[in-house]
């Protein structure tokens, strides 16, 4: 997805894991994915550089669709579809 398309997304769940280091954002994503239904979208906010690569790889392994990442000032917005 393009950044413009990502910015249009209204996520079904937002997980704010900013301020936590690895593996905090990954575990937060793992916990929260259970709260949404198949087809719904989750946005993970993280200020941890490693999460930018970790979460998309985790999502692929678990069968979720990685939609893309937006880099904001000091944090990342990572979008997944369950």
């Amino acid at each position: 997805m393009t950044e413009e398309q990502l910015r249009q997304i209204k996520p079904d769940k937002v997980v704010d894991a900013r301020g936590t280091a690895c593996p905090g954002p990954l575990l937060a994503a793992k916990k929260a994915i259970g709260d949404i239904d198949k087809g719904q979208i989750m946005e993970i906010l993280s200020s941890d550089e490693g999460t930018k690569r970790d979460v998309p790889k985790w999502a692929k392994k678990k069968g979720h669709e990685y939609l893309g990442t937006i880099e904001e000032n000091g944090y990342f917005r990572i979008f997944l579809r369950k």
Binding site: P23, L26, L27, A29, K30, K62
Partner: peptide, 11 residues
Amino acid sequence: GVMLSGAIADD
């Protein structure tokens, strides 16, 4: 503990 967390994320 960090490694454990990674493995838990992968079930």
